[in-house]
């Protein structure tokens, strides 16, 4: 049993270690500060700044949009509906189920919708698709946090004559660290996902300038570079993977620290 546990924790170190050993030698300032120059995929000058920025745009946009959409939903099932409500449990169940749907299905669905509306692959398409992907994570994480807030708090505010909207504000105040955790989790998922954006966001060598220009993403950039037969380009793929890993680990650790702080100050 100890061996099994060591193997599982070891899996984490093996992955991060492999990426670190292979990625570190090729990591340079150019990689994260320059966009691909001519012949970049043949091993010439340039970096993946375009993809880093594109990924950040998509992750930021979709987390923001998902927050705007999910906050009313979570408040509705926690404040406006009764605890025993059917709709509430159906909504929770369906966000659990949606959480399990793979990103490639979201990607394919986003793609069909975009064809239907005549949209081209763009930053907007990527953001909308990733929003669908992270929405269930957002709803589930926030719902779990809000559910831990004692019911007495709500009762107290009602007895002082507050409306349900005012009571919702109290719930939001109480769960701000939890909301941040939810945002960070969605952000981490959004920045690392490939299958949902490869159909919908497209790829380009430039930093996206408007919402309907194609948006390159870091995971896709890694994937493309890894497919190259040139050694330098492959090495840059490892380095890009290292950059992505560092970003995602920082976000995960941030989310964990926040949720720990949240449980410390719980009423």
């Amino acid at each position: 049993m100890i061996v099994a546990s060591v193997l599982i924790v070891g899996g984490f170190f093996l992955i991060v270690g492999t990426i670190l050993i292979k990625g570190l030698p090729a990591l340079s300032l150019d990689l994260i500060t320059k966009t691909p120059g001519g012949g970049f995929y043949m091993g010439k000058e340039g970096g993946v700044l375009n993809a880093i920025v594109g990924s950040l745009y998509i992750a930021l946009g979709s987390s923001g949009l998902a927050l705007i959409l999910s906050l009313p939903i979570v408040l509705y099932i926690n404040v406006y509906l009764k605890r025993s409500s059917k709709l509430g449990s159906i909504a929770r169940l369906s966000s659990d189920v949606l959480f399990g749907i793979p990103s490639i299905v979201y990607g394919a669905f986003g793609f069909t919708v975009m064809i239907y509306f005549g949209l081209k692959t763009s930053l907007l398409g990527g953001i909308l698709t990733v929003t669908l992907l992270v929405l269930p994570i957002m709803i589930r994480t926030m719902d779990e946090v809000i559910r831990t807030i004692p019911k007495e708090l709500l009762d107290a505010s009602y007895s002082l004559g507050s409306t349900r909207l005012e009571a919702s504000k109290i719930l939001i105040r109480q769960s701000i660290p939890g909301i941040f955790t939810a945002i960070l989790l969605s952000f981490g998922r959004g920045i690392g996902d490939v299958a949902s954006v490869m159909f919908t966001a497209g790829f380009s060598d430039n930093i996206p300038t408007s919402i309907d220009s194609p948006a390159p993403t870091l995971p896709l950039a890694i994937f493309f570079q890894l497919g190259s037969p040139v050694d330098e380009v492959q090495a840059r793929a490892y380095a890009s993977a290292l950059v992505l890993t560092i970003i995602v680990l920082l976000i995960s650790i941030g989310a964990r620290t926040l949720s720990k702080r949240f449980s410390k100050n719980k009423i």
């Binding site: 992955i15 890694i222 890894l226 793929a237 995602v248 680990l249 976000i251």
Partner: peptide
């Protein structure tokens, strides 16, 4: 932390 690592990094590994 393992659950947060993106799929593409697993692929590279």
């Amino acid at each position: 932390l393992l659950s947060g690592i993106p799929p593409v990094v697993f692929g590279v590994w």
